[in-house]
Design a binder for these strands. Structure first.
Lengths: 105, 105
DNA sequence: GGGAGGGTTCGAAAATCATCGAACAATCCC
DNA sequence: GGGATTGTTCGATGATTTTCGAACCCTCCC
């Protein structure tokens, strides 16, 4: 019934600033976050930067973002649905996400 | 006349977001930035986190912040004066620095 | 049942980063 | 001049990160 594995997410107040900043400090991961800014996306449809990556590498990129509390990753069908944790991030670090999304490269 | 070495700083438009985020993603470096939020500080007076660090390690922490364009480090007497590059950061990534300074840990 | 599609986990190899001590440079001040 | 103060740079070592392939798990669908 439940599809893929339920993976752990930090609670709102467990989200740590340095960990979030680190997660966002990689070009591929930042590209992912910017794609998600437009709304939830299926993981298969969410492609990191230019260069192709092995699927295990992709999985790792999402893992870092998930464990930092930047996004939520829930099973959906045979895949996963990714959502930016906007409200949680905004509550804890007001303006941060917006600044990162709007800022230059 | 000029004191210690003149060290390179990126120009405003060379400041890269991922590099800035990475520089800020370390607790010691973040602590430095927060201290500098109160105004310029002599390097000797600027102490990273709790744990003591060798002076070469301290120097390295400041170097990462300087090369990322987060702070300016100019010779002053036998030491150095550190200044947050607020205007440059604000121009390039509006709201980012403030969010990082104000946000939770 | 048995593919095929989508992802995670594991283990290993490569690259990057942090940390330190030692050596060196520039400044101040006696 | 000479010593103390303040920092940088270099080289080495250890710790994290990144990346990948291989093995495995679930789900959809025929």
């Amino acid at each position: 019934m439940t599809s893929g594995p339920e993976l752990p997410h930090p609670a709102r107040d467990e989200i740590a600033l340095t960990q979030v900043l680190f997660a966002l400090s990689d070009p591929d991961r930042l590209a992912i976050v910017r794609q998600l800014a437009g709304g939830p996306l299926e993981m298969k449809a969410c492609t990191p930067g230019e260069t192709a990556r092995a699927k295990s590498t992709r999985s790792h990129l999402f893992k870092v973002l998930r464990e930092a509390g930047v996004l939520r990753s829930v099973p959906q069908g045979r895949g996963r649905l990714l959502t930016l944790r906007r409200a949680d991030l905004e509550a804890r670090f007001p303006g941060l996400l917006q600044a990162v999304l709007d800022g230059a490269d």
